[in-house]
Simulated scan of single mutants.
Amino acid sequence: MYYVHSQYPDVILSKRVTELDIERRALWAGLFCSLSGLIVGFIVFAGTRPALFGSLSVGAVSAVTGAVSAGTSSAYAFRTMLRAREPWLKRIPKWRQVVVALGLVLVHVASTVMILLVVFHLFQQAFYGLHLDVLAGSLAVAAATGIAAYLSLEATARINAETLSVVLGIFMAAGVLISMLLAEDQGWWKSMFSSLGTTQAGMGSFWTFNLTLVISGLVLAAFAEFLTRDLVRLSQTYRCRPSLERYKLARMVRPRPRIVRWCLLLVAVAIIGIGMVPYNLSIEGHSAFVQLASISMIILLLGTVVLLPGYPAVFHLLSYTAVGAIWVAFLLWTEWSYYNLTGFELSVVAILFSWISVFIRTTSAMTQDRLAPRTTHSPSEVAKKTKSS
């Protein structure tokens, strides 16, 4: 436990990078990337009238330049600002810093590509047959590139466990939804959820689904680092309830951030493995990664009382309720044939992400309250002591 505490010391955010610094650098990044996008647009669209969506269209070029600017801005923000605001990042091993940076950079790159392609596709449907000239097309690329750089730098510089969990949930939902829309096999849902990641579903669905899982796994690994930092802060201020202090076993139960982190990392590795090994490539390998994710999450859910003492009783009740809900979902699939395997997988994903959302919000609330003065005495005892003094 000392090893974990030494990596996540209880420190106040550094003042070397202020909110104004982030805003100023984000504006500079947006301006520089806008000019770069404008130049690229003039070069690519020279002598043509590009459409809003399609091959060598405004949307396609914007997606490429926006992805580059988003990735570059995110990497710059992590290197120069986030690590300064969160000094504990510098204390973890280099390979873990690389994983965190890679997850943050890739999620901004992938999100930028998906958002820009969807937006320009919708605009093309709204303005059917519209073609822009070189100037208008280049300006559109410049605007998209600048906005991508600005938002990516802002988001990365201010990231924390709570916001990162929101990013992860939205990114996974958007990626899976797009892969569903791109699936050439309209009956994919009749077999299993993972069929979206096979070539039979179409190359668009194949790449979107599997890349979403791989990037989501990296983001989850980065999220585990931020969450562990918050859990270590809570463990440093943890106090056994006075009514339980007389029991030796109760005094031995303390928060275990390292075990929670390892459970989340195993889930992250499993998600990456599911994306890299589609079930039509290796059924055994794909199933092994699915089982690894399931076992890790079940251990985390069943062990909250031991791993996370001090959390509200209703949170532990919710954890066991989630396990029960997963079991009922399993019975609905196997025993009662209420839905097929796809329905069961969607139910489990919804249950687990709902629990993770509650877990993050509860941890965030407890972390924010950690600086509030606390006492082990009842209000009446405090009043008596105040009168006697």
Rank of each mutant, 00 (worst) to 15 (best):
W28E: 14
L234F: 01
M203T: 14
R158D: 08
L266Y: 06
S388F: 14
E154G: 11
L196D: 04
G37A: 08
S195F: 14
G137F: 03
S294P: 08
L300N: 07
V68Q: 01
S364C: 05
F193G: 06
F78D: 12
M252D: 13
D133M: 10
T342E: 10
V219D: 00
H108Q: 14
S282W: 01
D133C: 09
Y150V: 02
A224S: 15
L352E: 09
G137N: 04
L196Q: 03
T198R: 00
L227Y: 13
A143Y: 08
G37K: 00
Y150G: 02
M252R: 14
M114V: 12
F78C: 12
T212Q: 04
Q124H: 15
A136D: 11
R251E: 12
R241V: 10
L302P: 03
I159W: 04
S388E: 13
S74F: 02
W327V: 15
G303A: 07
T65H: 14
G129M: 10
G310K: 01
I356K: 07
F45W: 03
A143I: 13
T18Y: 05
S296Q: 02
L182Q: 15
L231C: 04
A173T: 15
N340K: 10
A222P: 03
F289G: 01
T18K: 07
P93W: 04
N210Y: 02
S364A: 13
S364T: 09
A143P: 07
F353P: 01
L307S: 10
L52P: 03
C240L: 14
A383L: 15
V219K: 01
A142V: 00
G129W: 00
A70E: 14
L244P: 00
V99D: 09
Y150D: 05
S296N: 05
A110K: 09
V358A: 12
H121V: 06
L307A: 12
L265C: 09
V98W: 10
P242M: 05
A136F: 07
R361P: 00
A313I: 09
L234A: 06
L346I: 02
A365T: 03
R254F: 04
R158S: 05
G103W: 08
P255L: 07
A157R: 02
G146C: 06
S337P: 10
M81V: 08
G59D: 12
V100G: 10
H108D: 07
L27P: 05
A29M: 09
G285D: 03
P255F: 02
I92N: 07
E154K: 15
G197A: 02
A313C: 05
L292M: 11
V118H: 12
V61G: 00
S380K: 13
A221M: 06
V277R: 01
